[in-house]
Simulated scan of single mutants.
Amino acid sequence: MYSNGYNVYKSNSVNYASKEQLLLMLVEGAVKFCKIARQAIIDKDIKKANDALIRTQDIFSELMISLDTTVGEWAVQLFRVYQFIKDKLIEANMNKSLEIIDEIIPLIEDINETWKEAYKIAKK
């Protein structure tokens, strides 16, 4: 009973979220799944690490697709950052490398914080 209610709530929060809120959800998900992958590698759970890294890669693919690079150089630079992170995620997944994950988690967290700040400023 409760899980069904939660699923409805979760589905509605995505269905009725603004474009900006969806972006924040994506980036927060990237942080979460990258950290799950890190722990799964430590735990030697290869399938869980693979699944979490692929989800993180998919999030960055979506962020890249949704980015309008015609609006300015900043968008092009952000696209390159997303591409760099996605490439590193692929490499980390192939090698199950904690070192690579430890390199990119701070980048993903910085992107998350930047988008949170941008959202706060835009709401004012």
Rank of each mutant, 00 (worst) to 15 (best):
A52Y: 02
A40K: 01
A37P: 00
A49K: 04
V31P: 05
K44H: 15
Q57N: 10
V27F: 04
N50E: 14
S66L: 11
L67I: 11
S66E: 13
Q39V: 13
D51Y: 06
I46L: 10
A75M: 01
D51A: 09
E73M: 12
K48A: 14
L53S: 03
A52E: 01
A52G: 06
L23T: 14
A52F: 00
I46R: 13
I65M: 11
E28K: 14
K48Y: 08
Q21M: 12
T70E: 13
A52R: 03
D58Y: 08
V31A: 05
A40C: 01
F60L: 03
I42F: 14
A75T: 06
L63K: 02
D58S: 07
T56C: 10
A75I: 03
Q21K: 15
I42N: 10
K35M: 08
L24N: 05
L24T: 06
Q21V: 10
C34H: 09
V76K: 15
K47M: 13
K32Q: 14
D58P: 06
L22C: 11
I54G: 07
E73H: 12
A37E: 00
E20Q: 13
Q57W: 05
G72I: 03
T56Q: 03
D43V: 04
M64L: 14
T69W: 03
R38W: 07
A37M: 01
C34K: 09
L26C: 07
D43W: 02
K44M: 10
D45I: 00
M64Q: 15
L24S: 03
L53Q: 01
I42M: 10
Q77C: 06
R38N: 01
C34I: 10
Q39Y: 11
E28I: 10
L63A: 01
V27S: 04
F33E: 06
K47I: 15
L22P: 05
V31T: 06
I36Q: 10
D45G: 00
R55Q: 13
E28G: 15
G29S: 05
Q57T: 13
T70M: 07
A49F: 02
F60E: 01
L24C: 05
D68M: 00
A49I: 06
E73V: 13
D45Y: 01
T70N: 13
M64C: 10
I54F: 11
K35V: 05
T70D: 12
G29D: 00
Q57D: 11
A37V: 02
R55K: 15
K44G: 08
L22Q: 12
A75D: 07
D58H: 07
I46Q: 14
I59E: 05
K48M: 15
S61E: 12
S61I: 11
D43T: 00
A30C: 05
D43A: 01
Q57M: 13
S61V: 10
K47D: 15
L24V: 04
K32R: 14
L63N: 04
L63Q: 00
K32F: 12
L63P: 01
E28C: 10
T70P: 09
I42D: 08
I65K: 12
E20C: 08
I36S: 09
I59P: 05
I41N: 02
Q39H: 11
D45M: 03
G72R: 02
